[in-house]
Design a protein around this nucleic acid. Structure first.
Lengths: 234, 234
DNA sequence: ACTGGTTGACGAACACTGTTCTACCTAGCG
DNA sequence: CGCTAGGTAGAACAGTGTTCGTCAACCAGT
């Protein structure tokens, strides 16, 4: 095997590979890649710039500020949420539930991106198509318009908060924490609460902690959708 | 009016006022005061130290890190949430709703403290007494243990996410923004969406935006509690 | 009284953050 | 060709949480 020759000193170094011009899309994609690897706290302007082989100041020609970048990332990620082909009012609950489960899964797969969604009104095309679909199937099922629109809020809040919470657990997992051990310690903590002040929690510790996150989220959706069903006009 | 005399140079300066020793409680209280004035982003170790007339490093003798400080602040604030005197199973829905409304109001009154609660398991005495009470009234009403305990999750998520969202609006208000104008612009935005792709949202723009935050939150609770009711054993 | 250990206080420093300002370069247009 | 607009990007600003090392006070033991 031939050892690599040292560079000839009087040869002009080859021109650096032509670099792709910066673009908003490139910045967003890079942000998402870093998000997936390290979570939102890893997404800094400097880090993105570094990965794009440029300086942080260059990003500001394409995004106004970091908040806008995070919103663009969220909107991009929302595009991954799959919707059913067509609304099926006879199975509106199943469809709404399916969409919520999809959304929560997509958000959770991108670390703590749900934090960006919390507290904000959906305005992007990807996010709004989801709202439109859910509105459609709920209205066709006979849910009154204002009820449907306010329920969208509630479902969005459940999705966002649950995805954000789920991320806290997956982060623990990735940090090498033993999640079972963590929940066991929570259960032990609850079990050791003073029984005179916390008789129920201390005796129900196992129940409080039981169940996998997806099951718990699905259950919360079921509760909400059952309640929603009671508003259907006869 | 007598001009103030210059200090006599050979008089030893009076000893500075004896300063209260630092304590965790003082740090937490100061943190909450800054939170209330400026939101979570105003709560920095330096700012708290400055208000306590000390240096940021001094705080670390009393709190492990900033996260712990925020959790202590949350736990302190949770103590403001009032509970009914006694569980009344015949009115379990009203009681649970009242507690949730109280909690959301208390959190909202402390800016974005709800963010600290999002994604975390309640472990402090103040938070757990709320869980214990709600469990008690739900169980007495006949809701099965696992349902009740998982419903606690869902209610907590609705409270936290709604309080966090409400804070975004009160922050706009305090920034001098006209909230009505803001919601009007959201409504206009929705109304201008392409009707071929967003026929419902564009035609329901007013409905989407209508209603005051407290009413919307109360409605979401009602939906959830109605659903929960369907799990009561007969 | 003296000594050693512990703990709280705290300045300096570290490594980092988002953003602005200024200078430079390039492409496009008249 | 000259000018303008827009992109690039280094330097700097003002800030963040935290650690390290030093000092002083207090307490217990001899």
């Amino acid at each position: 095997m031939t050892a690599q020759m040292p560079p000839v000193p009087w040869h002009k170094a080859r021109k650096a590979e032509a670099r792709q011009p910066l673009s908003q899309a490139a910045i967003v994609e890079t942000g998402i890649r870093i998000l997936d690897a390290e979570g939102l706290s890893g997404v800094t302007m400097r880090r993105i710039a570094q990965d794009l082989d440029t300086g942080p100041a260059s990003l500001y020609a394409h995004v106004s500020n970091k908040d806008e970048l995070c919103e663009l990332m969220l909107e991009r990620i929302a595009g991954e949420i799959e919707l059913p082909e067509l609304p099926d009012p006879a199975h509106w609950k199943e469809q709404v539930k399916e969409i919520c489960l999809n959304a929560q899964r997509v958000y959770t797969s991108h670390r703590d991106i749900a934090l960006v969604s919390l507290g904000s009104i959906p305005v992007g095309e990807n996010q709004l198509r989801i709202a439109e679909f859910m509105l459609d199937v709920m209205l066709q099922a006979g849910i009154p318009p204002q009820v449907a629109s306010w329920a969208l809020d509630g479902l969005g809040q459940l999705i966002d908060s649950d995805a954000y919470e789920a991320c806290a657990y997956t982060d623990r997992l990735q940090r090498g924490d033993d999640l079972d051990a963590y929940f066991t310690s929570v259960e032990e903590y609850f079990g050791k609460l003073p029984p005179d002040r916390f008789p129920l929690i201390s005796s129900m510790a196992a129940t409080m902690v039981q169940g996998d996150g997806d099951d718990r989220f699905a259950f919360k959706l079921d509760v909400f959708l059952r309640g929603l069903e009671s508003y259907i006009e006869q």
